[in-house]
Amino acid sequence: MSVVEQAQGAKTKAPNGSRFWWYLLRRIGQGLIVILLVTLIVFALLHLALPEGPAVGVLGMQATQEQIEAFNRENGFDLPVWQQYLNFLGQLVRGDLGDSFKLNRPVADAIGQRLPKTLVLALISMLVALAIAIPMGILQAVRRGKLLDYVLTTWNFVVYSTPSFFLGLILVVVFAQWLHLVPAQAPQGDTVADVLAKPAGLVLPVATAALGIIATFSRYMRSATIDNLSEDYVRTARAKGTSVPVVIRRHVVRNSLTPVIAMLGYYLPVMFGGMIVVESLFNYPGMGLLFWTSAQTSDYPVLLGCIMVIAVATVVGSLLADIIQALLDPRTRGEFS
C-alpha cells in the first residue's frame, strides 16, 4: 500500500567504490537541507499561527501584563519572527534545544528522558512484527492463491484499515477489561529499566503497534517474494535439482529481505507517528506522549525539539537503509551463488 509505494519510488541504489564516498557526501548535504526545511516548516506553523506567542496560554489568563511582557522578553517573542528563527537555528547548531515552558527543565533533558523509552517500545514492536510478518509474507507467497493466502490477506487488509486507536481500544476492552489478562495501562517510570520491569503492561501497546506493522510488512514481503520466485536464477537453481525450500532459504529470502530492510529506514517517521497514538492510548511515558501533552499546553520548545529529533533520525535512517541495501543486494554487488 502507500508506504510500499513510497519506498519503491524512493529507491536510489548506492554505487560502489570511490563513487560511494561522493555519494555519501552528497546524501549528507541533502540531509542537511531537508533538516533545514523541516525547521522552517514547523517554526513557521507555530509562530505565524499565533503571532503574539503563547504567553497567555502558558501563564494563564490571570497573568498580569507585566508578567506577559517579561515572558515574551525572556523567550524572544518580542523580536521579529525571522530573528526568532535565526536565533533558533543558532541554538540548534550549538545543540541547544531550549527550555520547556511548562516542564521546568531543558527540552533536551525532557526528550532525553523520554526518547529511550519510545525507542524501546518501537524496537520491541518492530522485532515482534518482523518476526511474524516475514515468515507470514513468505508463506503467503508460497501458498499464493490458496485459502491461507486469502485469509491472511483479508486479515491484513482489515488491520491495515483500522485506525490504531480503535484497534488498541478493542484490545484493551477484550484483554484488560473483560478477560483481565493484562493491565490496561503501560508501566510507568522514568527509566527504561522501570518500564521493562513490568512486561505485562507492555503487551497491549506492543500488540497494537505490531499489528499495524505486520499488516504492512507481510504484504510487502509477500510481493517481494513472489517477484523473486519467478526470477531466472530460481528456475535455474531448480533445474539444477535444488529443492524448493533450499532455494527459498538460500536465495529468495535474502533477495526479498533487501527491499524490506530498505523500507525500514523510511518507516521511521511512520513508526514515530504511530507512537503518539499508542503512547497516549496506553499512557506510556515516552516521547509521543510528551509531544501530545506539549501540544495541549502550547509548549513550543518541546514540540520543536521532538520534531527535530525525528527529522534527524529519519534522515540518518534513510541514508543507512540505502547503504545497507547496497551492501546486501547481490545484484548490485554482482554475484550470486
Binding site: V34, V38, V42, F272, I307, I310
Partner: peptide, 13 residues
C-alpha cells in the same frame, strides 16, 4: 528535498 522534509515529519505529529 521538500518532499523528503515532508516525509521526515510524521503525519500525526
Amino acid at each position: 528535498r521538500v518532499v523528503d522534509a515532508g516525509i521526515a515529519i510524521p503525519a500525526t505529529f
